[in-house]
Design a protein around this nucleic acid. Sequence first.
RNA 1: GGCCCGUUGGUCAAGUGGUUAAGACAUCGCCCUUUCACGGCGGAUACAUGGGUUCGAAUCCCGUACGGGUCACCA
Length: 484
Amino acid sequence: MAKEIRTRFAPSPTGYMHIGNLRTALYEYLIAKSQGGKFILRIEDTDQERYIEGATDIIYETLKQTGMQHDEGPDVGGDYGPYIQSERKDTYLPYAKKLVENGAAYYCFCTKDRLEEIKANSADKVAGYDRHCRDLSKEEVEAKLKAGTPYVIRQKMPLSGKTSYTDVVYGLVEIENSELEDQILVKSDGMPTYNFANVIDDHLMNITHVVRGNEYLSSTPKYNLLYEALGWDIPVYIHLPPVMKDAQHKLSKRNGDASFQDLLKKGYLPEAILNYIALLGWSPRDNREFFTLNELVENFYIEGLSKSPAVFDIVKLRWMNGEYLRNMDPDKYYALALPYLKKAVASPDIDLKKIASLVQGRADTFMDIAPLIDFIDALPEYSTDIYCHKKMKTDKVNSLENLKAVLSLLKGIDKRDWNEEKLHDSLINLASEKGVKNGQIMWPVRTALSGKDVTPGGAIELLYILGKEESLARIETGIDMLEE
RNA sequence: GGCCCGUUGGUCAAGUGGUUAAGACAUCGCCCUUUCACGGCGGAUACAUGGGUUCGAAUCCCGUACGGGUCACCA
């Protein structure tokens, strides 16, 4: 039986979940789930300085909202815990010491000042640490240790040769060992660096596929050297291209680019966001674009992953969100839209469900609803110019005439008969009696009722929504304005 | 700057030596229609660049340009 696929999402709790991060989680989830594997959540909080309170809750919450449930993690447990790196602090040092013993790592007593100095002096010559402590004698090391000198443990890179590996999406990657810095494995506070903790944890947690952003592409050989020194199997690597804000800037929290949470606040659906970002860097075998999370699992295949950066296009997300909204069950739509409808319409007698049905086909996000129906509570000020419409063949003169006719017609309709069918038949009749196009009646009515040149729904719907009293009042206002 | 990676229309993206170079968003035009939207139909727009290899290159090789990444006691 083939080994079970295990992937992990390993965010550091430093704030909101940004889109690139979420997409990485998605692909990790899909890679595992499409092959019947496990998806693990691990919190990488080895940098206490950057820790932000509440950030882990956002991570849990986001995973829940998107439906990407992890099989193991700090909140759900599992056989490989703890799943928070700060709680595993003691597990790393022994491995570092083992590396020191077998010559793959060494103690370094250089002060931060000294390091800064080399950095400043070396300009753009050799990158990184100058390996000052690499060849200290055993005695020197012992003495310093005994004296309590602060130290870090660094990885001892080979000075010559190359290290290569095959990435699933990028193919063969080969780096000269001389390019590799003697990176720090254990910091002076005793905490491991990401570089070290990552390797240890991935191995200890049986992670088979390491999936992460391609900024690690050229440092991966360092990790492989670590795996080898420890005598461990090297995992499968899948590096992902970045999600961009524009052609040259990555999407990032620092620039305040949209996070998942922001998009939700802006009225986007979690499932639409997920669907959209799935397609940013991956494409299915056919031309399908709409997928639920489960459908993504069914259709996912690793070869569909792309290696070039993708620009996040909010315009297309809007469209896709709109499609989700339009295809939603009307009752569900009503339930989700209700808070937004209530905020936009204060009048208590308004049929919000009717409004929901009008707005469902027109609003791409929930935030788009309010501006569409801002005329309901009160008639806005408007210019009579909008009564003129070329295609409807309306102008101020015939609008006035038709509005008057409509007014007296509507006055005759009993309040109890004030429904769309009745209103529709009456107005259509009026048009044919007068021998004019329907639009010549409808357009001025719609205009008088809304004071806008664009509305969700036409004259009939607006008459119904506004009710007899309000409708008549607004039409009278329109007549007054046109008579001036 | 060294090293690594990338480059198909404005954007996402199919394509793995022979195609009229898909499809989607956006855009433009037309149709439908009581406005708008939805929907339908159609248009315009792309293989960064120069050399090879080959009967034949978006597809393979080399160079160039452009862009990104990396070179932290951050992840």
